[in-house]
Amino acid sequence: MENPLKQFAIHTLIPIHIGGYDVSFTNSSLLMVIAFALIVFLFFVGTSRKSVVPGRLQSAAEMIYEFTANMVEDNAGHGSAKYVPFVMAIFLVVLFGNILGLVPYSFTYTSHIIVTIALSLMIFLVVVALSLKNHGFGFFKMFFPSGAPIFLAPLLIPIEVLSFVFRPISLSVRLFANMMAGHVMLQLFAGFTVALGLFGILPLTFVILLTGFEILVALLQAYVFALLTSIYLKDTLEAH
């Protein structure tokens, strides 16, 4: 049976080197280009007819927009409308990465920890930068819950700081682990199907069920990623 980790391998399609760095166009980059093309298609072609009664593509574009806008509004609160494009970009990048990865023989760029950690670190840095800009030093008040007795500060502040710093780690590891585990499972059971011959019908049934489950996970993880982004962005708007 083939090594189930091989599916995550990066292949160079066009070798590119800039300043000593290998920034070759790979299968991961190709999937990102496809995802970008689909996003542009959905939001450009889908909105080109501008009909009051929307067609399928326009409905999809509107639904994704309203879903994201409501999520940001509900979780980041008042004045958060300006964050909608940012949260939506994150949502769509993760969503298309997860979904396109389920197409056989394609590649899941969200199954690579370097991609998920880059996304979550970017979110973390955006949150910290905007918080410092909006609250100044008031930002550091969030590490000490208001109303707590002052003698608990030596205990509470390190805990709060730690939980804040762990946000990007948990965010990235959650997505990466979900994607990788799902794809390893699919590969393993698909391998059993081939190996067991006639009895392969059992793991095949499981693969079918698992594929449905993985589609759900793909949607859910994109949602969770965008949802947590909205919740973190709330800190940039509200004083503590």
């Binding site: 760095y21 290998d22 790979t26 995802a35 996003i39 542009v40 939001f43 760029y109």
Partner: peptide, 26 residues
């Protein structure tokens, strides 16, 4: 390096597209 490079381009393009083209249309 390659993944970060392409992810940065990809994300910035998606963000700029949504911010200035996609969402205003919707």
């Amino acid at each position: 390096a390659s993944q970060l490079f392409w992810l940065a381009i990809f994300f910035v393009l998606v963000f700029l597209f949504l911010r200035f083209v996609g969402l205003p249309r919707v």
